[in-house]
Amino acid sequence: MTHTEYLNHLEKHLHQLPEQEKQEVLADYQEHFEMGMLEGREASEIAKDLGHPRDIAKEVYLQFRIENAETNKSITNLSQAILSTMSLGLFNLIIVLGPAIALLGIYISLWAAVFSLYVGAIGVFFVTSSSGVQLILLQLFSAMVLAGLGIMLTIGLIKLGNMLYQLFMKYVKWNVKIVKGENYV
């Protein structure tokens, strides 16, 4: 395979990347070919050493998604990083997707509990019909306690969400290192 064919195949497989990122990657691989040819190597030998363009594109796309998820924190970016990680192999489908679904389920159920505290506060204050000042004060106090718990848990869940996001990004990076066979200590 000539270096032009190789770069064309690589460009075709990099279609998911933004244009600027794609051009940087192509320039890097153009440089690999130029340096190799200056050393007297054949283009086919250089292409063989570099690996298949499809595999390179998967790794580049994965790195792009991980970096994007770290700099622009959102569930969408995290999901894209997870899906890109799973493209490395079937092993990752179980090892990465399983914990992601479990943590997401637990996190959503915690938010449901907080929501129920807010609904309970409204229900205790407005729904119960009572007579007497003591009962009204008890209702008011109960509603304030439930709302206060809801507010405290909301703050805690926001902080927990940020922490889980960071931990899961570390887990994804660690998993990528294992799959690539890098030192993961």
Rank of each mutant, 00 (worst) to 15 (best):
45 E>D: 13
80 Q>P: 03
19 E>P: 00
11 E>S: 13
103 L>I: 13
29 Y>N: 08
98 G>H: 03
93 L>A: 14
39 E>Q: 14
50 L>R: 02
32 H>Y: 14
22 K>I: 00
9 H>C: 08
79 S>E: 15
60 V>K: 03
65 R>P: 01
85 T>L: 13
65 R>W: 00
96 V>H: 01
15 H>G: 00
25 V>N: 00
34 E>P: 02
44 S>R: 07
65 R>A: 14
38 L>Y: 13
54 R>P: 00
42 E>H: 10
54 R>I: 08
32 H>V: 03
60 V>G: 01
42 E>W: 04
28 D>N: 11
39 E>L: 11
43 A>H: 05
46 I>L: 04
16 Q>I: 01
22 K>S: 07
74 S>M: 11
36 G>C: 09
19 E>N: 10
19 E>K: 13
71 T>D: 15
78 L>S: 03
80 Q>D: 13
82 I>L: 13
8 N>G: 02
84 S>W: 06
96 V>G: 04
14 L>T: 02
62 L>V: 10
56 I>S: 02
15 H>L: 08
79 S>W: 12
57 A>S: 05
22 K>N: 07
86 M>F: 06
10 L>W: 02
69 A>K: 02
88 L>K: 08
85 T>W: 04
31 E>N: 13
57 A>I: 06
35 M>N: 15
69 A>S: 05
18 P>N: 09
28 D>Q: 12
10 L>Q: 01
33 F>P: 00
69 A>L: 07
73 K>V: 12
21 E>G: 05
67 E>P: 01
69 A>Y: 03
98 G>V: 12
69 A>G: 03
44 S>K: 09
19 E>V: 10
65 R>H: 04
38 L>K: 15
33 F>W: 05
36 G>S: 08
79 S>Y: 12
69 A>R: 00
33 F>E: 00
36 G>R: 07
63 Q>P: 01
26 L>H: 07
104 L>K: 05
25 V>F: 02
13 H>C: 04
38 L>R: 15
38 L>P: 02
98 G>N: 09
47 A>G: 14
13 H>N: 09
41 R>F: 11
94 I>T: 13
37 M>Q: 14
40 G>Y: 11
41 R>E: 15
26 L>A: 06
48 K>P: 01
39 E>T: 05
12 K>P: 00
86 M>I: 14
89 G>N: 10
93 L>E: 10
37 M>N: 10
67 E>H: 10
88 L>D: 03
7 L>W: 03
64 F>M: 02
63 Q>H: 12
29 Y>R: 09
74 S>R: 10
26 L>Y: 10
60 V>L: 02
71 T>A: 15
83 L>Q: 13
23 Q>P: 02
54 R>L: 12
39 E>I: 07
50 L>C: 04
54 R>Y: 15
52 H>Y: 11
12 K>A: 06
73 K>Q: 15
44 S>W: 01
87 S>Y: 13
